[in-house]
Simulated scan of single mutants.
Amino acid sequence: MISYCTNVHPAEDLGGILAQLDRYSVPVREQYGEDRLGVGLWLAAPVARGLAEDPAALAKFRAELDARGLGVCTLNAFPYGGFHDEVVKQAVYHPKWTDPARLRYTLDCVTVLGGLLADDAVYGSISTLPLAWREPWTPVDDAVATTALTDLTRALAQSERPVRLAVEPEPGCVLDTVADALGWLSGRVDPAHIGLCLDTCHLAVSFADPVDTLRRIADAGLDVVKVQASAALHVADPAAEDARAALAAFAEPRYLHQVRELAEDGTVLASDDLPSATAELPAHGPWRVHFHMPLHAAPPAPLTSTTDVLTAVLAELRGEPHIEVETYTWSVLPGGGDDLAGGIAAELRWARDRLTSRKATS
């Protein structure tokens, strides 16, 4: 079952979440053409806490989902709250994995997901941030985060339903790339309970080879627990006037849009946000921008998107990781339009078609 991530919706209380499911998720399911639609729920911390502490409320919430033809096998526990504030930027990386609030929130999500999983689910997955923004980060922080993940692993092992944590590398964070995540997680976590969330927008921004990346993950003895099906902006010639003009429309104030440039010698140069990239990067090589683009629609020329990276990952995946379409940027997308349900349904069809092609040839 392919899911779409509900962090695209701003609701941060239970009543608002149900209203958003009625307004968007049910029409998405109808336009997608399935009797049951996967939703990768994002629950702000107070909602997760309330459901985790009230079994009757959790059972009622599951019944509400069932009545709408919605199923849950994965949660996005990366944002803690305020994900649709006027300015989010680096606030999305708080609380860090050194803060007890992060562990508490994740444990609440484990309880909630256990209550929402279908009876025949092989496992549930929870994606989480890559420890923190890269600075400040010290060896002491490393030790504290390791202890927190050890405590979480103990809870996962004791959970009545099988739930796995999926750590999501992101540009600019302590675990910036998949290679960083493998280096930090390998030998430190139990791979039966903790693996990777492979966000294909983040992977593309890092300029890593998708096929080689999947091989390295397998060689490290870790699993891709979850794939966030997403695409970045690609700029072949960032010095060109028409490219600069097209990019300007994407330099918006809510979210952080990290930029990476591939130098001729293979070095990847970095800027932390699109508005500052023009001054900080030489623009001699191609750019990739952390701006989640709709999978089914090309950006304005001369910009392109990195759906080729996602397609390569889907073609080479082994096993059955959870697939979650995660385009949370519709509200800040230039010319995004008003038909959010139609756009999400089109993305899901795009992903389903490529997964179907993969299974037909495997």
Rank of each mutant, 00 (worst) to 15 (best):
A240W: 05
D272V: 04
H202R: 03
D265K: 05
L295K: 12
D272T: 11
D242Q: 12
L274I: 06
L256Q: 14
V178Q: 12
D176T: 11
E261H: 13
P191L: 11
A239F: 08
Y255R: 04
H257K: 10
W184L: 01
S206G: 05
P294A: 05
P169R: 08
L303R: 11
A231G: 09
P169G: 08
T213M: 13
A246F: 08
A231T: 07
L185C: 07
V235E: 03
I217W: 11
P294E: 05
H290T: 00
V289F: 06
C173L: 02
V235F: 02
D199Y: 09
L198F: 04
P286S: 08
P238G: 11
R244T: 09
Q258V: 14
L196P: 00
F291S: 01
S276K: 14
Q258M: 10
G187I: 06
G221C: 10
R288P: 08
Q228G: 02
A220Q: 12
E261M: 11
T278Y: 12
A251W: 03
D190E: 13
L256E: 03
H202Y: 09
T213G: 14
A208R: 13
V174Q: 07
L185R: 01
T177G: 04
R244V: 09
P282I: 07
R254P: 00
A239I: 06
F291C: 02
P299N: 10
I194R: 03
A277R: 03
D209R: 08
E261W: 12
L185N: 01
A166F: 11
A208G: 10
V205W: 11
A279R: 13
S271V: 02
A246H: 12
G183F: 07
P169L: 06
H193G: 05
V174E: 05
P253I: 12
F250S: 01
P300S: 11
A283K: 05
R244I: 05
L303F: 06
P169Y: 08
A232K: 03
A231S: 15
D180I: 10
C173W: 02
S186A: 15
V225Q: 04
D219H: 14
F207D: 01
V268F: 11
P286C: 06
R215D: 15
A243H: 10
L175G: 05
P282A: 05
L198A: 04
A181P: 00
L203C: 13
E264N: 04
K226C: 07
V163L: 11
H193F: 15
D209S: 09
D199V: 01
H234G: 01
A239Y: 07
D237G: 06
V259C: 07
V259I: 10
D176R: 10
H290F: 09
F291L: 04
T200G: 07
A277W: 00
A218F: 02
A298Q: 14
R254T: 10
C197L: 10
Y255E: 02
I194T: 13
H296P: 07
L281V: 09
C173Y: 03
S206A: 15
P253Q: 12
A181D: 01
A166D: 11
A181V: 01
Q228D: 12
V259F: 03
H257N: 09
D190W: 11
T213S: 14
P300Q: 13
T200M: 12
P275L: 09
